[in-house]
């Protein structure tokens, strides 16, 4: 069974649509959204509604910190993110806010755990940026495969039989065997606002039959999204970030 894992869509309609088309072309059986549907980008309503549609067709979705903040939860965001969230709140309907507020923090399928940030305390929104920071996630769950987002930078780590956690270098678009002798944690890059220097939308496909993970990048019309952000009066830094991917 093939799971397409998308995270940090951040109200970027063009990126979301491009990835969904790509997911369809790659024949995924199930879509999993790891949160942060909104925030930063110019199309929060469309992205919320699309997520809702996908859920009604069987997709899974967990909550991200931007989703919680847009729904009204108190937050500790930096100035840029805060400005975008305040703008987002004015755009969302009551139904959309409730949809975001009601999302669960984690989801589990077989031996896989899906969560937005670090799995040891999902609501604390800790960043998983290295093998050291991945260790608490491995300790907090018995799931063999952990998938998260939040950092906007793809990362892969594994815990060996002795529990030693190490980061693993990988290349996009090449299947990585998820050896059953160890446990794996993958930080899926961002669909709507990549920060690893590659502007293309990041996502991943897990094939549970082949037991393989594939980090993927999908190009989309970054200029169009950036123009929309400028037109909406969102901060220029956020628009530039999409064009550069960092």
């Amino acid at each position: 069974m093939k799971f397409a894992i998308l995270t940090d869509i951040h109200a970027n309609r063009e990126a979301f649509q491009a990835v969904l088309d790509d997911v369809k072309a790659h024949r995924a059986d199930q879509i999993v959204l790891l949160g942060d549907l909104v925030g930063y980008g110019p199309d929060p309503e469309w992205c919320c509604d699309m997520a809702g549609q996908l859920l009604s067709k069987g997709a899974l979705c967990v909550q991200g910190n931007h989703d919680a903040a847009a729904a009204g939860a108190p937050d500790e965001m930096r100035a840029l993110a805060r400005r975008a969230i305040e703008w987002t709140r004015t755009r969302l309907s009551e139904t959309q806010r409730r949809f975001l507020a009601d999302l669960p923090l984690t989801a589990t399928v077989e031996d896989m755990l899906f969560v937005h940030a670090s799995a040891n305390d999902p609501g604390a929104w800790s960043y998983v940026t290295s093998d050291t920071r991945a260790t608490p996630s491995f300790r907090a769950t018995t799931a063999r495969l952990i998938f998260c987002g939040h950092t906007h930078v793809p990362m892969l780590a594994s815990a060996d039989i002795g529990g030693v956690v190490r980061e693993q270098a990988f290349r996009p678009d090449l299947a990585i065997p998820l050896l059953r002798s160890r446990r794996w944690l993958a930080v899926i890059g961002a669909v709507g606002q990549p920060r690893d220097g590659v502007p293309q939308a990041g996502w991943a496909m897990v094939d549970t039959t082949k037991n393989e993970l594939n980090f993927r990048r999908t190009p989309y019309d970054t200029q169009r999204t950036a123009d929309k952000m400028r037109a909406a009066g969102l901060p220029e830094e956020l628009a530039l970030r999409l064009l550069k991917g960092k």
Binding site: L156, R166, Q168, A169, F170, R171, L174, I176, L179
Partner: peptide, 9 residues
């Protein structure tokens, strides 16, 4: 060449 190097470290 195309797989993670488990032995790297």
């Amino acid at each position: 060449d195309q797989l993670p190097d488990l032995l790297a470290e």
